[in-house]
Amino acid sequence: MSTIVDIVMSGLFQGSLYAMIAVGLALVWTTIGVFNFAHGVLMTVGAYIAWQLASSDALGLPIFIALPIALLASAAIGLLMQAAIVRPFIGRPDVVLLAVITTLAAASIFENGTLLIWGPRPMQLPPLAAGTVKIMGIGISAHQLIIILVTPVILAALWFFLTRMRLGLALRAVAQNEDACHLVGLNVAALYGLAFGLAAALAGLAGIFLGGFTFMSPTMGSEPLSKALVVVIFGGLGTIAGPIFAAYIIAFFEAISIYFIGFYWTPALLFAVLILTLMLKPEGLFSRRSRSLA
């Protein structure tokens, strides 16, 4: 019984993190048509900014004040990044390739920048809430529980924004037809910035979630990013819902696999399953052919 609770809790927790990261990747892909390899370092940067604001070794602000500031800062960094290294290539036929190299370069810059500013020493963020909660005989930290509960709310809010609000509709429209967007009077450049900024804020939030749970390091974003890659391959990048489902499925798969097969071989098993899935269904499990949000 406790094993099952353990697996369920672990699946929900990891799934929340993966979903939060993967949704940001899908948001940028569907609107701008580029893949952001700096998404992982945006997590790292968000977590470190929050640390700077909230840690008792630094400014020591309460986490609920530090959190929104850190998210705004992440969004601003994402926005600037978009303007500097993505926007200039929009419209070129090789934009995908150029954006891969510039976002990889940005990842390298930010990773080493974090190392220079905060050093290699592992650090920890204050958790969102202290203490542990007992669920069916299993202790789980309040921090993790909050993440499990809050993530679906945030994802639902994002879904609401993209399907019910005019600005969200505009984001989805940009993904589908840029010229027509100009003709209904949308500010396409601003929408690109918004998509990137929003994705960066989601990445920053994921980083803060992670930083309150494990130790932070300048390379903390790379492993979750590689998991998110697997998630978006499974779920397809073309929609928002696909990666969310895939995130939870993969997290549960991992939790079960770690329990029965062990920690070391789980990545290899996951990858083998991924390759098999792709050979059978190349477009991902839930994706449609076109790029579109929601």
Binding site: L237, F271, L274, I275, P282
Partner: peptide, 26 residues
């Protein structure tokens, strides 16, 4: 190459990149 033979564009990037990550993790 086996899984990427039928894939296009960005998915090839993702699978090959993820392959690199898998090798590191192993």
């Amino acid at each position: 190459s086996l899984p990427i033979l039928r894939l296009k564009g960005i998915y090839v990037v993702l699978v090959t990149f993820a392959f690199g990550q898998l090798v590191v993790q192993l």
